[in-house]
Amino acid sequence: MNAVGAYVAIVSARYRTLLQYRAAAFAGFMTQVFWGAIKIMVFFAFYAVSREAQPMSLAQVVSYVWLGQALLGMLPWNMDKEIEQLIREGAVSYELVRPLDLYAFWFARTIALRTATTTLRSIPMVLLAGVVLPLAGQAQWALLPPESLTAFCVFLVSLFWALMLACAFTMLMHVFLVWTISGEGLNRVMPSFTIVFSGMIVPLPLFPDWLQPFLNLQPFRGLVDVPFRIYTGSIPVADAWPDIVHQVIWTVIFVAYGRWLLQRSLTRLVVQGG
């Protein structure tokens, strides 16, 4: 299993590169704090006027919002700038002269992309929402501790698969890029889908009932809705396993499709110039 070492090295190198942008991480953190506050105010208003019983309690929704703000960077909302550049400038050649599987090679880079800035932003966010706010007497605004220790452990499992799903989907965007060269179109369209259908804007249970069967099937709920609702207890631990299997299945589908498509595009590869 020595091969794993190579991929670990790639992840850590990308980490070091991405961690150079600390100012960007701080700016991102501030933006997300404000967005989180605005969203929570909207939910306060919504719960105040709503007469029906809602599928999630207000406290659960507040925690859900803060988790979302902390882990926003994990969503597949952008592509790896380096890979984009490699593809556009034809430097893919250098990727192919390494004794590595190209899909796994890029997947490792993608893991770094999805986690490096996220860890940098999520720690202060959790501290602010989970520790500072309750201490300041703003308990109704705070990120609550997980439902139980078991719920937290199951949440971590689900979060891991959310990351894998996010990377597999980002990889699909990278592979499409190999076909289309310019990433602008995809880069603009995809985030709208992922942000809405993952449950990042509004938790999925709050969507109309007639949409629920579709929302339950589609892949993006595995990114946000599943892990966060396990954390808040909106999905009880005992009922969580089908949802995690749902995450795994969609990850496997995205990886298989991405690998197949990349393999196909490599045999028809045209490397321009030089």
Partner: peptide, 14 residues
């Protein structure tokens, strides 16, 4: 994958 272990490559423009 086996082949590229035996070779080194430099593309001057990249």
């Amino acid at each position: 994958k086996a082949h590229v272990r035996n070779i080194g490559v430099v593309f001057g423009q990249r």
